[in-house]
Design a protein around this nucleic acid. Structure first.
Lengths: 235, 235
DNA sequence: TCTATTTAATCAATCGTTTGATTGAATTGT
DNA sequence: ACAATTCAATCAAACGATTGATTAAATAGA
């Protein structure tokens, strides 16, 4: 079964209004919450079932065990984040390739903006990021689903925009690596939030703080884009 | 008891050659390994004791339980990483404040270089980063020890260098936030290694790949420094 | 009715911790 | 100086609690 077919099946299984679909949804929702907060090993099936207001045996019945429920969570994340990315990256790569440098830069910054807003303000984003990060930390060799459904397309679009905005070939190693520094900045700003709050003497990240973060990352990315564009003529 | 006093005590307790010191060292070493790999909840005291080649009861005896051993690991990290930083950041802040912009930029890049090499190549660094990240993810409100002993001093030095290199005041929010984007780039490049390897079609990060990473991050940071320096005259 | 789903109860296994016994090296008393 | 005692340290064994999984009976939906 192909990746997208699996996600379509999952989507249908979760969006229908059969009683079984609701139980599945509740279980995934609950598992996502607890896995993200306490980690996989730190979460008991009883806790998951209790939050989902269902019986422990439901986990085995619907997902054939705790491990299956985790995999369902991964698929769910791949699906839902894929939806978010579909909005952000609604343009196909071929469209991007015909953009002017200015247009591409604006699009890239808009995409970065959305990602910052999502990571910094969305409550569910916190759980998703925790879940993904724990998965990468614990099973770095089993991140294929997440890469193919989330990070692969994201990196593809970002690198292509970066290429259009700077005039550098999208195939160059430097540009592909630069994409990581670009995304790394904004993701780290969320991961290290406890340290950011301490350092900036903030109590929380509200609208004002969000704008400050956006401003700094914009400036950093614009500087990098300018420099990479210069490199075009230098090369 | 002050933080440094606690760490001095810990250092003495671990470096002496009494039988108890060796057992403590072995237990912390083992716990660091397993906590970093499988997480706190995912690691059993039996596994820890087995790797440390001692009895399970030793954990309760020396650290009054699993939780105490985790705290000892945190203190150990704060101590050892503090030592690493002491070498990297051997200059006092007052010395930095008398550097020329060129000198400060060179020092900043040298510091970034060391951090990249450490995070990308040091085997222990992988465990430390995993441990720290899991801690930040799971107990964001209990990261005081790590902040005060590791990230606080690091951010202080980096921001001061950034200030000298750009002419911007070290107290400005923009500069303090820029420090996070700076450090975030290189840390993320290590955290997201599974994705970096997939994207770059690398099998591992060897000397050549390390140089490519350094080159890109150097370029990104230099671009940011140039831009922030321009901002001095613009403001 | 007949299948799909939920439920309470129970399973063996593993969890962190505690126990009491044992060791050998200090410390004490004479 | 030497036996008596105390002490820190380690050990195997067992504790009650909790884990993920499973069962068979009860319930719900078509």
């Amino acid at each position: 079964m192909s990746k997208s077919a699996m996600q379509d099946e999952l989507r249908e299984a979760l969006t229908s209004d059969t009683p079984s679909a609701k139980t599945k949804r509740d279980l995934i929702e609950s598992a996502l919450l607890h896995f993200g907060r306490e980690g996989y090993a730190g979460t008991s099936t009883r806790t998951i079932a209790q939050t989902a207001k269902t019986n422990i045996a439901s986990i085995a019945y619907h997902f054939s065990g705790k491990a299956g429920l985790k995999q369902a969570c991964i698929n769910f994340i791949a699906m839902s984040v894929g939806d978010v990315l579909a909005v952000v990256l609604n343009r196909k790569i071929t469209e991007i390739e015909h953009m002017s440098p200015e247009e591409a830069r604006a699009k890239l910054l808009e995409m970065v903006d959305r990602m910052i807003t999502f990571t910094q303000t969305n409550k569910r984003a916190e759980l998703l990021m925790s879940f993904i990060l724990r998965e990468v930390l614990h099973s770095p060799d089993e991140t294929d689903t997440l890469y193919k459904a989330v990070f692969g397309p994201l990196l593809d679009r970002a690198t292509t925009l970066l290429s259009r905005a700077t005039g550098q070939p999208a195939t160059s190693d430097e540009l592909k690596l630069a994409t990581f520094t670009l995304i790394g900045q904004l993701l780290y700003m969320r991961l290290a939030r406890p340290f950011v709050l301490k350092r900036m003497e903030w109590k929380a990240v509200g609208p004002e703080e969000l704008e400050q973060i956006k401003s700094v990352i914009h400036r950093s990315i614009n500087a990098l884009l300018d420099d990479l564009s210069k490199g075009k003529s230098n090369a």
